[in-house]
Amino acid sequence: MKAFTKLDARMAPLTMANIDTDQIIPKQFLKTVEREGLGKGLFYDFRFDEQGVEKTDFVLNRPEYSGVGVLVAGDNFGCGSSREHAPWALLDFGISCVISTSFADIFYNNCFQNGLLPVVLKPEEVQALMEEAKGGNHVVTVDLEAQTVVSPSGAAFSFQIDPQRKAKMLQGLDAIGETLTAAVDIDVYESKRALSEPWLERA
């Protein structure tokens, strides 16, 4: 998992509330056996019409938002089925931070397992960011260490985050990474077992 420390990136506004995981990544993209490449299915039905032609008016298709790294979204982002493909698709598209007033639980948890930072701000703060995101300059700074979001015009908003989750995110530590901090213990354990139960060691 990639560490998240501080990000300066373009932000795109997605005003709708209750964006569910099926909208983030529709069912037909779940058949893949990979995690990579899901970005092409991200918000597919928003980005493309039934013929597969790009809808040029959708925010993520507009040239001024190319290379976007932060999404500012409406209430209850990530509701619906628990598919882990949703954070994978966002990350694959290049989005590593989503700002909203609230997130669905499972999606919120899945984000931390994958290095995507979900930031909860107050409704008026999200509203202010939405407005600025619509303007010409929309580079935002998200600083996890300081727990702040600084808008293009310099308005600073602070956010809350669980300290353990924050620490793991700063180090890029997922559950595997965390367990691997005990790698020495695993090594020691394995060598003991190799002696006590040698028949389990397959050459």
Binding site: V33, E34, R35, T179, A182, D185
Partner: peptide
Amino acid sequence: VVAQQDGEAILYIDLHLIHEVTTPQAFAG
């Protein structure tokens, strides 16, 4: 039990059986 971390045990696994349906994304990860 290999170690304890954050209130959870790290439990050693002697045998891991795998099949085609629940593993592709694990390997991709």
